[in-house]
């Protein structure tokens, strides 16, 4: 790297880094003696004091038996949560793409990808989502769209249908670059 280029990089980094906030990390955090902020959850979670209290009974017996009623309950509500998140993030992705904002678009694309990755792990064929009609369940005969982390995957994916009419391949390139470098990506 030439020295002037290196200086420019330093300046850019400085500018970027100064807008970031690391205070909680650097100073550490504690809510343990804090009665107000985290108090809301006290009913649900008691800080354990003895072994008996520490063991919170769980409803789920066996994660591999998909027909187990209680697991189904847990899985379905997880799929519902993920489905809602998918709809939300897709909505934001669409707005960014319609505004031709590759940087924001990449950020939301990364989040859409992350939700799709999770959905694919817990309900690979989308069957459970379909059966329980959870939000954004894939239609019959279809599976979840593949997460797209490359220009090729994106152009092949139904997600590219969200692009603005005048979007070109350069835009998609910028979009993917932003998605890959997104903190959520």
């Amino acid at each position: 790297m030439r020295p002037d280029k290196s200086e420019a990089l330093r300046a850019r980094l400085r500018k970027g880094a100064s807008s970031f906030d690391f205070d909680a990390l650097i100073q550490g955090v504690s809510t343990e003696d804090d009665a107000t902020e985290a108090g809301a959850l006290d009913d649900a979670i008691s800080t354990p004091t003895s072994v008996d209290d520490e063991i919170i009974p769980i409803q789920i017996q066996d994660t591999t038996v998909a027909d187990d009623g209680q697991l189904k309950g847990g899985l379905v509500s997880a799929l519902e949560t993920l489905g809602v998140r998918l709809l939300e993030e897709t909505g934001k992705l669409r707005s960014a793409l319609q505004a031709s904002d590759a940087s924001d678009g990449g950020y939301y694309l990364a989040r859409v990808n992350n939700v799709l990755e999770l959905l694919e792990t817990v309900d690979p064929a989308g069957e459970t989502s379909r059966r329980y009609a959870t939000p954004a369940a894939p239609p019959p005969g279809r599976v979840w769209p593949r997460p797209c982390w490359s220009v090729y995957e994106f152009t092949e994916s139904p997600i590219s249908g969200l692009l603005a009419a005048d979007a070109d391949l350069n835009f998609v390139g910028d979009l993917i670059e932003s998605a890959i470098s997104s903190p959520d990506g």
């Binding site: 205070d23 909680a24 990390l25 550490g28 955090v29 809510t31 343990e32 985290a38 959850l41 800080t47």
Partner: peptide, 16 residues
């Protein structure tokens, strides 16, 4: 950092 701050709103923990 943002996530840790967000967690302080709902969880009891202490970390440095």
């Amino acid at each position: 950092n943002k996530m840790i701050v967000a967690l302080t709103k709902s969880l009891r923990f202490r970390v440095e």
